[in-house]
Design a protein around this nucleic acid. Sequence first.
DNA 1: GTAACCAGTATAACAGAGTATACCAACATG
DNA 2: CATGTTGGTATACTCTGTTATACTGGTTAC
Lengths: 130, 130
Amino acid sequence: MENKKRLKLAKEVLSDPRNPKEEVQALQDTIYVIGGKWKLPIINSICNGNKRFREIERSIPGITTRMLSRELREMEANLIIKRTVTDTIPVVVEYSPTEYCYTFGDIILEMIKWGKEHRERIKKDLSSEL
Amino acid sequence: MENKKRLKLAKEVLSDPRNPKEEVQALQDTIYVIGGKWKLPIINSICNGNKRFREIERSIPGITTRMLSRELREMEANLIIKRTVTDTIPVVVEYSPTEYCYTFGDIILEMIKWGKEHRERIKKDLSSEL
DNA sequence: GTAACCAGTATAACAGAGTATACCAACATG
DNA sequence: CATGTTGGTATACTCTGTTATACTGGTTAC
């Protein structure tokens, strides 16, 4: 058992090509940053060209002004988006993506893909149940 | 303004190549299924070959037995994983991925990629601040 | 025989994510 | 002049995900 343990440890630390420890941490980091119900939909909306507060709000089913306001503030602080106020009359507030914002693109794309396939699967399951 | 509205509506419904409405919904569906702190790390762990309860637990920093127990039960019910009990003495409980489980692979991969790059960025930012 | 490992369950409590509803000032629209 | 839009804030509440701590019954190693 002593030997087994030592063997396992060596295996773990040295020869594993996809270092699991590093990957779990990376995964958990990502979840920490984009966790919650709203951040990714908001990023998606803004990257899709929505700029105004109400516009973004309308583009995300179920979100409340309060949550949108909170998340936007937080994401601006974290440099994920930029908030611009014009000095026209009336003032116009616009949100725009930063470069950092686009780094989430691939994740969002994969999640959209999964979501679409998920719907397909459910449709098929329902129709085959008849 | 009447015309503007009608134009916008038509544009929205017809000619948009990446139908935003469908995509937001797909995105929100996905978040609904894999939302929370633990589901993806657990899926990742099991897909990486971890089978035993304590093994999975040890592979995910910060998780408690309670959360792992709950999530495993839920994910078994949703057919994301399979739970097998042998009738040996002592009994051995093993968790294994279903095919469905692997459909999250691309999402997890992208999130691991993002997490790693995120660490790199932070490292660079810190070193450039000196 | 005692310490440790396995696969969890029990209980209690908390923090904060999320909801609901109302409200505001400034401006535009008809 | 009434109604609607914009960009939010205020208040209060719920809910549940998450944590913390302890415990169980069986097995195995030293």
